[in-house]
Amino acid sequence: MTEAGRERAALSAEFERVGPGVPTLCGGRTAGELLAHLLVRERRYLVSLLGIPAPSVLRAAERRMARLPWLEMIELLRTGSGGWLPGRRPTDGLEFLRLYVHHEDIRRARLGWEPRPPEVYRDDTLWHGARTLGRLAYQRSPVGVVLRRPDGESWPVRRGPRPVTVHGQPGELVVHMCRRPRVRVQAAGPPADVSAALAARPGTLFGGFAATRPPDGSGQHTTGYNEG
C-alpha cells in the first residue's frame, strides 16, 4: 500500500472515530463539513473547478454531499476518488499531502495534541512533498526561503535575497506551509524577513484559511512559534 493509501485509511478511521460534529482547523469546518469538502473535490472534481469563480456552486455541492449518511460518506473516502473516471479528480501527486493535512486538521483541533512520532518512510515522503509544496507556498515571498529537517538536510524552495530558514519535522513543515494555526517549526533570519516570508504563504492551500499566528519577532535572528 502507498503512503497515500495508508493515510486515506487512517483518515477514514479518524472520521469514523470522532463523528461529524467535532471542530477542525480547516477553514472553520466541522468534521462533517470537511469530509463533504474532500468528497466533492475527489468525486465532483469538475464542480469543484466551477466553484473557483463561483463559490456558491461549490457550497451547494458540499451541502448536498453532506446529506449522505455519515458511514456512507466515510466509505466513499476510504475507497478513493476512482482515478480518471469522468468527473473525478485525477491523481496529481499531492494526494498524500492533502490527506495528511486534513488528518492533522482533525488531530490538532483537540486540546493536548502532539505531532506524530517520527516514521522514516512516511517522513521521507512528506519531505519530498514539502519541497514541491514549498515552491507553491512561498512563490510570492520577497526573500529566499530554505526548508531544513532535523537531520540537517535542507532544500531551497524560493530563491531570493536574505534567505530565511524554516526548521522542522517534514510533517510540521507541510502543515506550516498550509497556514494551519497549530504547528511546531522554527524560522531563522532577521525578524522583518521572517515575517515577510511567512506572510507570503497563501491562506487557501488544501481548503485552509489565513489563520496562522504570526511570529512574535523576539530575538535578533531566530523567530519560532510552537502553538498548542
Rank of each mutant, 00 (worst) to 15 (best):
E95Q: 09
A188L: 14
L85H: 05
V166N: 03
Y138M: 12
L198F: 03
L76E: 15
A54R: 14
G208P: 04
L198S: 02
R135V: 04
G80N: 05
I106K: 07
L99P: 03
P202W: 11
M1D: 06
R116I: 00
A13D: 15
H103I: 00
R59I: 00
G217A: 12
G224R: 05
G27A: 12
V175Q: 08
L39D: 06
P142A: 12
V143D: 11
V18D: 03
W127P: 03
A13E: 13
P53L: 04
G51L: 04
R179A: 13
L205K: 07
T30N: 05
P23E: 08
S81V: 03
L11V: 02
L133Q: 08
D151P: 10
R108G: 02
R184D: 12
N226I: 11
V146T: 15
R213L: 13
L99Y: 14
T132S: 12
A54L: 14
A197V: 14
L94E: 13
G134R: 00
V146M: 13
A210N: 13
T212E: 13
G93K: 08
A66N: 09
R116S: 14
G19S: 10
P181N: 05
P191A: 07
V146D: 07
P142F: 11
F96C: 01
D124V: 04
G80T: 09
T125F: 03
